[in-house]
Amino acid sequence: MKKSAIVCRCEDITEEEVLKAIEEGYTDLEELRKKLRIGMGPCQGRVCVQIVIKILEKKTGKKVSKISIPTSRPPIIPVPLGTLASDKDEK
């Protein structure tokens, strides 16, 4: 991977930015994500989180525990507010 490779496409975060944040001490997967907004894009991290875990593990030499891998939050695919606001099943 080149240094400037994009890790999180949705939020436009590069590998270099991830490495820099790890060097600054953000070695906890969740803190790293929150600092960089990784995984908060439309795909909810399905593209990037596994890559970030690999970078983190390589850089720190520590395994990221399975339990701390973030869950994706609903909705699984983006839905327009107008659809969500529709009255169909409520009086």
């Binding site: 908060m40 894009g41 909810q44 939050r73 909705p75 983006p78 839905v79 327009p80 507010l81 107008g82």
Partner: peptide, 11 residues
């Protein structure tokens, strides 16, 4: 005008 805008996340 937000009717056509997607909701992304909910927590």
């Amino acid at each position: 005008q937000l009717k056509h805008i997607n909701m992304l996340r909910h927590w």
